[in-house]
């Protein structure tokens, strides 16, 4: 699978964690205090709690349920109930490739040699949920795929599309560096209204 946009850098500052997803794969996306982005399976292996409800402490993500801390490789390195214990290597969270580039947080669920999508110097504007599947959205614009869709418009908009469920996707929008962000935002809302009126 290609790189997929799962969020915007400005929405996940250092020290924050958010829930995200790529289709059926639920993700905890977090940024360490030093600015490195991570996308992990959204489930603590201890009791199944969502890690996206957790907290960033130092260069670790901790589960909110029992405070188990996972280092940047996804390995559990501290269990507060047993402070003197070195947790076995087997306690770890599945991690995915995650890179921030051009203000977009990109994730690939599989190892990939595919280069990150070119953004043509555009800047991020906002994210917007749309009640339409990602492939249908690509088809609407006659695009080959949905990773990024360039739209002929006043603002030179580029849509990075994140598949969520069968009938939902998230659009992460970028536009020309000098575009009026507010105008682009209104344009996106109009686009959504149009898309959601298209019969399935």
């Amino acid at each position: 699978m290609d790189w997929i946009a799962v969020g915007l850098k400005e929405d996940v500052p250092p020290g924050f964690v958010i829930p995200s997803r790529i289709a059926d794969t639920e993700l905890a996306v977090w940024c360490s205090p030093s600015g490195t982005y991570h996308a992990w399976s959204d489930r603590c292996p201890h009791r199944g709690m969502r890690l996206s409800h957790g907290f960033v402490r130092g260069e670790t993500l901790a589960c909110i349920y029992h405070g188990w801390q996972y280092n940047e490789a996804g390995s559990c390195h501290y269990i507060p109930a047993h402070p003197k214990l070195t947790p076995p290597d087997t306690i770890c969270v599945p991690t995915y490739r995650c890179i921030e580039a051009g203000g977009v947080i990109w994730v690939s669920l599989t190892e990939t040699d595919t280069p990150l999508p070119a953004l043509g110097g555009r800047r991020t504007v906002r994210s917007l949920p749309v009640s339409m599947s990602a492939p249908d959205l690509a088809a609407h614009f006659g695009a080959a795929g949905f990773t990024t869709i360039a739209v002929v418009s006043d603002h030179d908009v580029l849509l990075a599309v994140q598949p969520c469920t069968d009938g939902e996707c998230m659009i992460h929008a970028l536009a020309a560096p000098d575009a009026d962000r507010s105008a682009v935002s209104h344009w996106l809302e109009d686009l959504r209204a149009t898309l959601e009126r298209v019969p399935a």
């Binding site: 639920e26 709690m49 087997t90």
Partner: peptide
């Protein structure tokens, strides 16, 4: 917010400690 909603009874899906 625990996944799965049901309680796994077989070992392997969740990792217990002494606590």
């Amino acid at each position: 917010n625990q996944l799965p909603r049901k309680l796994p009874l077989d070992p392997g899906m969740e990792v217990p400690t002494q606590a």
